[in-house]
């Protein structure tokens, strides 16, 4: 079956498709948040070493992983925009950046609140924490660079370059706990298996799915705004029901 993918890369087609997808992602995210928090707070047992403090994990790990994953997706879209000159790809990259930045901030915030009772410090300049802080700055740099150039297509190209170069930081964050001596604990979830209690895992994966679906929903909402802003002079925009009334 041949699907013409470039059909969906047209902003006018995607605007409507994204609008139809948003409720599905948003509602499944909401349901998974409820289920994940229920497992995290009422099913998962108290940790022997960390007592209740470990429950920060259920938001800290999903926020951290998604902040890295979204960066790679953003850089991927930016690269597509650069290579194929597809406007929608660049718009998707711009739509993902604020969500990624907020999740990177949330990762640092929840990490600080977890670090204080466990390590005795809100912040240490170790490899994991510092590289995650750099990730936040890369997101902010991407947003600022894009905003500072008036011509949107030139802004797309310049910020795409920043996004692509910055993506080397993602594996650095991921492997930092192996490459350097860090205060941050190593990965509890590995490709070879895990050392965690089953309910803790279930809670964490459910929350991860919830944050993922939330990020998709809110990015689709944002890309719809970006499409309208950048296509404001197009005929199809003036014919939209929400513009006409």
């Amino acid at each position: 079956m041949a699907i013409n993918w470039f059909k969906y890369s047209s902003p006018s087609t995607f605007y409507g498709a994204a609008g139809k997808m948003v409720p599905w992602f948003a509602w499944s995210a909401a349901i998974l948040f409820v289920v994940g928090l229920y497992i995290g707070f009422f099913v998962a047992p108290t940790d022997i070493q960390q007592s209740e403090a470990y429950r920060i994990m259920f938001i800290h790990v999903p926020a951290s992983i998604l902040s890295m994953f979204i960066y790679l997706v953003m850089a991927g879209y930016a690269a597509l925009g650069l290579i194929f000159n597809t406007r929608l790809s660049s718009m998707m990259a711009s739509a993902l950046a604020p969500t990624g930045a907020l999740l990177a901030f949330l990762s640092l915030w929840t990490g600080a609140l977890w670090g204080k009772p466990m390590w005795g410090a809100w912040w240490v300049w170790d490899a994991r924490l510092t590289s995650e802080l750099i990730l936040l700055f890369l997101y902010l740099g991407f947003i600022a660079l894009h905003a500072s150039i008036d011509d949107p297509r030139r802004a797309d190209r310049a910020s795409a370059l920043l996004a692509i170069i910055g993506s080397v930081n993602v594996p650095i964050i991921y492997f930092s706990v192996q490459w350097w001596n860090t205060l941050h604990q190593g990965a509890s979830v590995k490709f070879t298996g895990t050392s965690m209690h089953v309910a803790m895992q279930q809670g964490m994966y459910t929350m991860m799915m919830a944050v993922w679906l939330y990020a998709i929903a809110v990015s689709l909402l944002r890309v719809r705004c970006i499409i309208l802003e950048r296509e404001c002079k197009a005929q199809w925009v003036s014919e939209l029901a929400e513009v006409k009334r």
């Binding site: 108290t46 007592s51 209740e52 403090a53 920060i56 938001i59 949330l106 929840t110 609140l113 009772p117």
Partner: peptide
Amino acid sequence: NGYAWYIWGSYGMA
């Protein structure tokens, strides 16, 4: 168990 500020501070910020 004494970690209220840290835990609710995390989820509150989220």
